[in-house]
Amino acid sequence: MDSSGNTIFIPGSTSGIGLALALELQARGNTVIVGGRRTELLDKIAADHPGIDTVTIDTADPASIAAATQEVLARHPELNVLITMAGIMRVEDWHQPESFLASAESVVATNVLGPIRLIAAFIEHLRSRPDATIMTVSSGLAFTPLKATPSYNASKAAIHMLSESLRLQLADTSVKVVELVPPGVRTELLPGHENNEVAMPLDEFVREVLGLIEKQPDATEIQVERVKFLRYAEVRGDYATVIETLNATDPHGR
C-alpha cells in the first residue's frame, strides 16, 4: 500500500486510532472518507477537517453497510482502499453466562461479521481497480490473550486468520490484503484506557504506522515495535511469561 494518492474509506473512524489515522492519511495526500454511527461526531469531523468526507454507517447492521457502500461508491468511484477499523472491546466475566453472553455476541457481530460484510460489499469494486488494498485491523491480543476480554481476543484472532486466508485467495487479483496489528494504544476502547500509561500513546502509534507503510509498501502485516512482545511470544518460547506479564499489568484483568 502506498502512503499517498489513495481514496480511502475507514468505517469506525470517528475517534481513537481510526480518526487519528484518517487525519494523518489526509495530511499525506489521500482522499479520506470517515464512517461512523454518530452523526454529531461525523458533522464535527467534517467541520473541523475540510476535505474529509463522512458517511453514516453501523457495521453491525447489514442494511447500513449496504446503504453506505452505495453512497461511498457513488461519491468516490475511484475508491481503492478499505480499512475495516470498526471494533469494540468489552470486559467479560465468564463465570456467569447472563453477564457475558450479550456482550460476546455484540463483539463478534461488530469485530468479525462487520469486516466480513464490509469486504463482501466492496470486493467487486476493489477488484476493478488497478491497485487496491484491504486493510484489516487485528490486535496483539490475537496472539497473546488478555484474561478480561475473551471475546475480543477471539475476534481479533479470527481477523488475523481471515486476513491470511484472503491474501491467499486474492493473490490472483489487484487487491492486496494488509493486516494492521496494534498493541494496547491510549484510546477510549475501554473506559479509562486513554489514560493507561502502559499503553502506547496514540500519536506515537500512528506516526510509526505511517512510517512503516512508507518504508514497507509491500508489507502484509503492519507491526509497530511495541506489539512484537505479544505478536511473537509463542515463537520466542516465552508465551507463558508474556501472558503473566500482560495480565499482571492490566487494570481490568485483576
Rank of each mutant, 00 (worst) to 15 (best):
A68C: 06
A148C: 10
L101M: 11
D61E: 05
I83E: 01
A60G: 14
Q70E: 14
A157G: 15
L101A: 10
R117A: 12
S128C: 01
D131N: 14
E124V: 08
T149L: 06
A66T: 15
G87Y: 02
D61H: 05
S139Y: 09
I123M: 13
E98R: 10
A109E: 14
D93L: 13
H125R: 12
P145F: 10
A121V: 05
W94K: 05
T84E: 08
A121M: 04
A148L: 09
G114S: 11
V107I: 13
T144I: 09
V108R: 09
L113F: 13
A66E: 14
V81Q: 02
V108P: 01
V108K: 03
T69N: 01
A109W: 00
P62T: 01
A109Q: 14
L73F: 10
D131G: 08
S138N: 03
M85E: 12
G140Q: 08
L118S: 05
D93I: 12
P77K: 08
T59V: 15
L146G: 14
S151G: 05
P97K: 13
A63L: 07
F143V: 00
G87A: 12
P77R: 09
A148V: 09
A121E: 01
P145T: 12
I123R: 13
M85S: 14
I116N: 00
T110Q: 09
T136R: 12
A68V: 06
A157S: 15
E78A: 15
